[in-house]
C-alpha cells in the first residue's frame, strides 16, 4: 500500500481519485494496520464481503478498473502491480508484478482519452469476465457465510463459504481468503499447489498485462 501512496502523490492531480479496496473478511483487524502504515491520503475501503470484486467480476487481487470522467471503464481486470515484487525466499521465491503499469497509469491520468493505454469499449467489454448465475449465487453464499461468522455460527459459515467456492471455482479470492483463516495461511502449500494447477491448465492466474514497456 505504500507503493500506491507514492504513485498517488507523484500524480498529485485533483481530478484523479484512487480507491484502494481491501478484500478482507478479517476486516479492519487485518487490513487496517496495513492501510495505516502507508499513511494514505487516497480513499480506503475495507470490503469484508468482496463487493467490489463482484461489481467488476474480478477473481483475484490485485485487480483494477480505470474509469474515465463519464463513468466508462477504459481498462479492466489486470494484475495491478505498481512495481515488481518478490514473494518468498530461496528456492520458493518468485517474482511478480511489473514496472510498466505505473507509467501507463500516469500517462492516462495526464492525457486522458488521448493516452495509448485507453482501450475501446469493445475491448474492455471483452476483458470483463463472465459473471453468470452460479458466480452471482457464489457471491450471495459468501456473504451469507460472513454473516454467520459474525454471529458465531461456525458450521453455517463454513458451509456457505464452501458453497461459494463450489459455485465459483475460478475465484482465487474466495480460495485464498479462506486460507487466511487457517494456520497455513494464504501463501502455503495449498496456495502453491493451486497456482501450479492453474498454470498447468493454461489458465491465467492474472490476465496477461497488455502494456508494453516504453
Amino acid at each position: 500500500m505504500p507503493v500506491w501512496q507514492r504513485v498517488y502523490e507523484e500524480l498529485n492531480d485533483p481530478n484523479f481519485v484512487l480507491i484502494c479496496v481491501a478484500e478482507d473478511t478479517g476486516g479492519e483487524a487485518v487490513a487496517g494496520p496495513i492501510f495505516d502504515a502507508a499513511k494514505p491520503t487516497y480513499v480506503q475501503v475495507v470490503d469484508e464481503d468482496h463487493l467490489i470484486s463482484s461489481v467488476f467480476n474480478f477473481v483475484n487481487v490485485p485487480s483494477s478498473a480505470w474509469i474515465d470522467e463519464e463513468g466508462r471503464i477504459v481498462r479492466i481486470d489486470e494484475g495491478t502491480y505498481s512495481k515488481t515484487h518478490q514473494f518468498g525466499e530461496g528456492d520458493q521465491a518468485f517474482l511478480f508484478g511489473n514496472d510498466v503499469y505505473t507509467p501507463a497509469l500516469k500517462d492516462w491520468v495526464k492525457n486522458g482519452a488521448a493516452s495509448s493505454h485507453v482501450q475501446s469499449a469493445q475491448i474492455v467489454a471483452r476483458n470483463i469476465r463472465e459473471h453468470g448465475i452460479n458466480e452471482m449465487k457464489a457471491d450471495a453464499a459468501f456473504r451469507l457465510g460472513n454473516l454467520f461468522r459474525a454471529h458465531g455460527e461456525k458450521a453455517k459459515a463454513e458451509s456457505y463459504w464452501a458453497m461459494a467456492r463450489t459455485l465459483n471455482p475460478e475465484s482465487i479470492n474466495f480460495f485464498r481468503q479462506n486460507l487466511t483463516l487457517t494456520e497455513e495461511g494464504s501463501g502455503g502449500e495449498t496456495f502453491r499447489k493451486l497456482r501450479v494447477e492453474y498454470m498447468e491448465q493454461g489458465k491465467d492466474y492474472y490476465r496477461p498485462l497488455d502494456i508494453k514497456a516504453s
Binding site: A22, E23, T80, R176, T180
Partner: peptide, 13 residues
C-alpha cells in the same frame, strides 16, 4: 463522475 478513478483491490493475504 467528472474525475478519473482507479479502483484497485488488494488484500492482506
Amino acid at each position: 463522475k467528472g474525475k478519473k478513478a482507479l479502483i484497485v483491490t488488494w488484500s492482506s493475504w
